[in-house]
């Protein structure tokens, strides 16, 4: 087992999950509370990565992060290295690719909170920030956990975007899913099997934890 690749994959998944929660919570709150005509567009944009082929997203990201765009040059200037083919670039790509897996459960969780509670909070003088912090988030803990678990496992298993914008640089951008591809190319099926089982285990464990938590306080229908 290549521990360096495992460590890089886990680091990428954890960083992506943290960034996605920090971005997803305010974005989902905006989606459930705004009356802006831009809402359908923003929701569509945040859901698009589910339908988009990863290579398409990866291709446009590669262009965006490269030296031909202002964003790419600015990022390169600020970080001291180009975003493309770097770990930071992988985080940017993973965040965009897994965005729906953060925003969808969070939006569903916030929508499920009784509107009468939000109205009472407003009547009692709470502003938007306090409603989010004191009402919506505590009542949507399961959705936050679901979002975190889905973002983490989705990032652990991603392949197309990572390959497009990160290449296959050992220790810098090679993740477990790319390692499996390399091992198969080398006909190292036993090694590929071990790495695949590890990915399978991580995903399954995350989902079991998620479902165990979800059914903990719920009603039984039989």
């Amino acid at each position: 087992m290549d521990l360096q690749t495992l460590w890089l994959t886990l680091r990428l998944a954890a960083s992506t999950t943290l960034v996605l929660l920090a971005m997803g919570v305010p974005l989902a709150f905006w989606i459930v509370s705004t009356r802006s005509p831009l809402r359908p567009f923003v929701e569509a944009m945040s859901t698009l990565p589910i339908l988009l082929p990863p290579t398409v997203l990866g291709f446009y990201l590669l262009i965006l992060l490269g030296p031909r765009t202002g964003f790419g040059r600015l990022a390169s200037h600020l970080l001291g290295h180009p975003l493309a083919f770097s770990f930071d670039g992988l985080v940017v790509g993973s965040v965009l690719y897994s965005l729906p897996f953060a925003v969808q459960p969070l939006t569903a969780g916030f929508h499920a909170v009784d509107a009468a509670l939000i109205e009472q909070a407003r009547l009692l003088g709470a502003g938007r920030w306090r409603i989010l912090r004191d009402i919506l988030l505590p009542l949507s803990v399961r959705s936050v956990v679901a979002a975190a678990a889905l973002c983490f496992t989705h990032t652990v298993g991603e392949f197309g975007v990572v390959l497009m914008i990160g290449g296959d640089i050992p220790g810098a951008t090679r993740t477990l899913s790319i390692a499996i591809y390399d091992q198969v190319q080398d006909f190292s099926y036993a090694q590929a099997n071990r790495t695949s089982l590890l990915l399978l285990g991580i995903s399954l464990a995350a989902l079991v934890l998620l479902y165990a938590r979800r059914s903990g306080g719920g009603a039984r229908h039989a």
Partner: peptide, 15 residues
């Protein structure tokens, strides 16, 4: 929140 009005309905809507 700035109207100085309390509102209670049939549904208590406690947090």
């Amino acid at each position: 929140g700035r109207r100085s009005i309390g509102f209670v309905t049939q549904q208590a809507a406690l947090f």
